[in-house]
């Protein structure tokens, strides 16, 4: 397949990264901070989707839920249980923040899978803001709740005394790497999947390969559905884990 592709390369145009270009949604022009861009529009659609599911879907407050309402309740129960299980009872008051992150990411991811859509969560700027917000929020919360004893998080009491300084250094580094891995994991996953689909789509220009290309896109699409959910879940669960560290810093 690759050989064929190369022989007809003149006809093939790959621009897998073009789908990530941010541009004004209305007309042309420079992108300033307030411009309504394609990114803005898809974020707004995510907000609307959250509103539709969690507010309109539950408007009847039925004891026996409709389908929409039971999906909303499922999402609520899923995240609520996760926060409660990981952070404990005292973490439940941070549930709305984690729910906000999860709902935004999951809807941005899934809306981004629509053809010609834009995926805000494929951008490091977006995921980094969320990850650093979690990082700073959790760090400040840790110091506010525990005072200087929050630093006990880095001092592994169960390890032999000689190893503790070394472990403290490693813990410290891993603590500061958290927001980086947290954000790049989500953005990287989203970007990679979309770029791969775009590359497969580029191969569809060759008639002989087109059927395989369509099959490959279909398979990738299924995988991306999975990734969309899993990455939102992973982002939320890691947020919970970091929050747990802030609330109960002692191992």
């Amino acid at each position: 397949m690759a050989g064929e592709a190369r022989s007809e390369e003149a006809g093939l145009v790959f621009h897998p990264m073009d789908q990530f270009i941010v541009k004004p949604f209305f007309g042309d022009g420079a992108v300033s901070w307030y411009t309504i861009t394609n990114s803005t529009v898809w974020m707004a659609l995510a907000v609307l989707a959250v509103f539709a599911l969690l507010v309109l879907g539950t408007s009847k407050r039925a004891v026996i839920p409709t389908r929409m309402q039971s999906v909303a309740e499922l999402a609520y129960g899923f995240i609520y249980k996760m926060v409660e299980d990981i952070c404990g009872k005292d973490g439940v008051k941070y549930f709305p923040y984690i729910m906000t992150l999860f709902m935004f990411i999951v809807f941005a991811n899934f809306l981004g899978l629509l053809p010609t859509a834009f995926t805000p969560t494929a951008h490091i700027a977006v995921t980094a803001v969320m990850a650093f917000a979690v990082f700073f929020g959790v760090t400040i919360l840790g110091f506010v709740k525990n005072g200087p004893s929050f630093l006990g998080l880095f001092w592994v009491n169960s390890a032999p005394l000689a190893l503790r300084p070394v472990l403290a250094l490693i813990e410290l580094i891993s603590y500061f790497v958290r927001p980086v891995s947290h954000s790049i994991r989500l953005a990287g996953n989203m970007m990679a999947g979309h770029a791969v689909i775009k590359v497969f789509a580029g191969f569809a220009a060759i008639t002989a390969i087109a059927p395989f290309s369509v099959l490959a896109i279909t398979a990738m699409y299924g995988l991306e559905m999975l990734v969309s959910f899993i990455q939102a879940y992973v982002f939320a669960i890691l947020t919970c884990v970091y929050l747990k560290d802030a609330l109960h810093p002692h191992h």
Binding site: S32, T35, T37, A72, E73, P96, T100
Partner: peptide, 29 residues
């Protein structure tokens, strides 16, 4: 641009959830 609109979106979702959706779903459950 992305950061500005992301913050707007997150704040909007946070208020939708904390003011309306979550208390409602919680009470229904």
């Amino acid at each position: 641009n992305q950061i500005f609109w992301l913050v707007v979106a997150l704040v909007a979702i946070y208020f939708i959830l904390s003011r309306v959706a979550l208390p409602r779903i919680g009470s229904v459950l």
